[in-house]
């Protein structure tokens, strides 16, 4: 019998990688300690006599909530407006995020198995592919970097008070977030079916339709629904700068020191979020 061939020595990966990891951990710890100091984290302030008294005064002032029929009837339009803002805002966010997210997916625009052939040696062609990718990434990070609150301030200046600036603010800020998350979902999709589709002679767009989107669909829906839930909450904050909805009422009631009404409004908001959560869970179950 012949002896099996000797296995070649496995290249040994030395301990050189543990040093960077060590440095990284030290850095994170240092950052944490520094943050405790500079962020003035001091939980004892919460139980000091003075602040305790203020807190209790506020809390007692809030109860009981104002549940009078008159007030509730008055609040119906703002509640509806909040729902509408969140739905319209999320819709715009999806319309902004999807195309940008696709462009920002490197496995679709310039890298990976879909670009092994046909790009070799042609630097200009490669550059032509990387440009839209870089553009989309940049735009998405700008959209994301500016908080929806600031976007709302900008849009209130641009289009005036009311729900519309709220819709735009959510559309742009969440569009940035959705686009980024979409691209990450697309990036992590199983590439083998894509390779098979490409091998039949399918075009990029067809590969998107038949391979990428079907695989990413559940995650897309799931995350978009979560963003919708966030949009409902966000619309409360946006109201403070005059972008309509429950938030605007909240701000009014607070300014009038009408804390009973504030409680009602917060309760309504919580109800809305819970309802959205329930509905999302339903939809998620349906599409899996």
């Amino acid at each position: 019998m012949a002896t099996p061939p000797p296995s070649p020595a496995v290249p040994f990966r030395g301990p050189s990688r543990s040093l960077p990891i060590f440095l990284f951990v030290v850095l994170v710890l240092a950052a944490f300690v520094a943050s405790v100091k500079t962020a003035q984290v001091d939980f004892f302030v919460l139980v000091e006599a003075e602040s305790r008294r203020n807190l209790f005064r506020f809390l007692f002032g809030m109860f009981p909530p104002d549940l009078s029929l008159d007030f509730l009837r008055l609040m119906l339009p703002p509640v509806l407006e909040t729902i509408q803002i969140s739905i319209m805002g999320t819709t715009i966010a999806i319309l902004v995020g999807l195309p940008l997210g696709l462009l920002a997916t490197s496995s679709l625009t310039w890298g990976g198995v879909l670009h092994e052939m046909g790009t070799m040696g042609q630097r200009s062609r490669r550059l032509l592919r990387v440009l839209p990718y870089a553009f989309a990434r940049g735009l998405l990070s700008v959209f994301r970097a500016i908080p929806e609150f600031v976007w709302a301030l900008i849009f209130v200046r641009a289009v005036g008070l009311g729900p519309f600036p709220g819709v735009l603010a959510i559309g742009v800020a969440y569009g940035g977030i959705l686009g980024k998350v979409y691209s990450e979902i697309l990036e992590s999709v199983d590439p083998k079916p894509l390779e098979a589709l490409q091998a039949t002679g399918a075009s990029k767009l067809q590969i998107v339709l038949y391979g990428l989107l079907p695989q990413a669909f559940p995650d897309f829906v799931s995350y978009s629904l979560y963003r919708w839930e966030c949009a409902i909450r966000a619309s409360a904050i946006l109201g403070f700068v005059g972008a309509g909805g429950i938030g605007q009422q909240l701000e009014l009631s607070m300014r009038m020191f009408n804390f009973h009404e504030v409680t009602t409004l917060i309760g309504l908001l919580a109800l809305l979020v819970a309802a959205a959560d329930l509905l999302s869970a339903r939809i998620r179950k349906g599409i899996l």
Binding site: P193, E195, A199
Partner: peptide, 15 residues
Amino acid sequence: RRRIGTIYQQQNLVP
């Protein structure tokens, strides 16, 4: 590519 049909080791279908 259209003139070549491939059957893969793992089926490579879209599940």
